[in-house]
Amino acid sequence: MAEPGNPKLVAPVQHKTRPRGFLPIETNRFDRIFISVIAWIGISLLWMRFLESWIPLWGATVLCLLLAILIVRKG
């Protein structure tokens, strides 16, 4: 869009990003926590709808906790 060196294109706020993890987008720590929470809620809801009659909700919690750790550290 514009020549390099044009000050407009220097993002005024630098994302504090790390080298890419397994997530398809660049993320910082906030993003990864956010994704974990979103996933946690989503999985718990689906669990309550479809799986809870066989496995208690704690299953979802443990699963999500593991997933969250994975996302936050490796995402």
Binding site: P12, V13, Q14, H15, K16, N28, F30, D31, F34
Partner: peptide, 12 residues
């Protein structure tokens, strides 16, 4: 502020 300072967490 958001545009001229690098505030940790501000981009979220």
């Amino acid at each position: 502020a958001l545009s001229r300072w690098r505030l940790p967490g501000a981009d979220n």
